[in-house]
Design a binder for these strands. Structure first.
Lengths: 207, 207
DNA sequence: CCGTCAAGAACGGTCGTTCGCTTTACAGTG
DNA sequence: CACTGTAAAGCGAACGACCGTTCTTGACGG
């Protein structure tokens, strides 16, 4: 019945990535809403029909891109926890910032620009929020765990709230990304060094 | 000859504010680009022609709104500096977060939602960036000054970079705003308390 | 020769903005 | 204080452009 003329699945995935890469570049440059599908389609090198074969709507394309960007970052943080190393809070925050800086700027497009656009989009687009929320919760969960261990080691008061301690660590990452993009004069290494200074003050039982 | 029919200037300003208030509410709810002028016009209770009498374009309206929101916050930070009090870095950061939390949520619309939208918009709209950049530079300047005084008081190493120390403090504010909106489980008082814990560790020469 | 993939013209709808008209409110006048 | 001239203030239908999406058509491989 089916004459099944199938293109190798790897080629389909490559096409999908081709669209995602092109759309990521355009969205990073011009935001989600201000970028038209015609722009994305032209950048992808394909046709409108082809793009709509792989993504049913612009919203689905946006969600897929946000998922790829914040999902990759969340995966890195999860890996840090599974490695089961127990760095100082100071070291954990500084290393996380350096990791995010490297992760977002290694490719041809600055993925942190997409992340900032995703923040705004998540406030109005439930589909994007549903992607962003668990990803950032995972990342913050890493810091919350670091905070708990810090409490166990006597670096933080035992009665402090680990969730909010973790939230302040998470802020160091968000704030770095934002200030680097908006103000342009924040250097990853210098920022990480400053973090090590400000977080190093807490008393430690191990040294 | 001229019957100069002038409406009192206060009435003109009131109309302008009426438009700004309505547009702020719509933009806070739906973002700048995804909100149409028709939506703004309907919310303002005026007509298209009237709105376009006070603002020459949507971009000008957006810039005016962003200016009002981030400008008000920047003014508060400038005032803190002029008061010439020299709080601990810990106290300065915690108080700043509580001030921003109160400032953005006191009115009928959450202004921090507009701020997050402005971050994304500033990445693609030079006019918005030109408004956002100096405002946030002013706010960070407050923290940089706090960092300098902290160094003078021996709370930070003398060879640390005050700009990046200030940047990490600024991150505490950005990160609070973002996590409260995206994750929804960050409490201002508890977050400020956590900040006081984590920043209190640095050695002090005065106590 | 069937089914898949890609192409791109075309679609209805919505966008930001304009413009000609009406209404409003005040200064001058007697 | 009533009247009137005049320009600002307001209105809203209408505009061209562009939006995201669909659909017809053709090419190609099994």
């Amino acid at each position: 019945m089916d004459g099944v003329p199938r293109v190798p699945e790897s080629h389909l995935a490559a096409r999908r990535d081709q669209i995602l890469d092109a759309a990521t570049a355009r969205f990073a440059a011009n935001g989600f809403q201000a970028t038209g599908m015609a722009d994305v389609i032209a950048a992808s090198g394909l046709s409108a029909g082809a793009v709509y074969r792989y993504f049913r709507s612009k919203d689905e394309l946006i969600a897929a891109i946000v998922e790829r960007v914040v999902g990759a970052a969340a995966a890195r943080f999860e890996q840090l926890l599974e490695d089961d190393a127990a760095p100082d809070p100071a070291e954990a925050v500084a290393a996380a910032v350096e990791m995010v800086a490297e992760l977002t700027t290694r490719g041809p497009v600055d993925l942190s620009r997409v992340a900032v656009q995703a923040w705004g989009e998540a406030l109005r687009n439930p589909g994007v929020h549903a992607v962003v929320d668990p990803a950032y919760r995972t990342m913050r969960g890493y810091f919350v765990e670091i905070a708990r261990r810090g409490q166990a080691a006597g670096r933080f008061p035992a009665d402090a709230d680990p969730l909010h301690l973790g939230a302040t660590m998470m802020s160091s990452v968000f704030g770095f990304v934002l200030q680097r993009l908006l103000l342009g004069d924040v250097d990853p290494a210098a920022y990480a060094a400053a973090l090590r200074v400000t977080w190093a003050g807490a008393p430690s039982t191990t040294g």
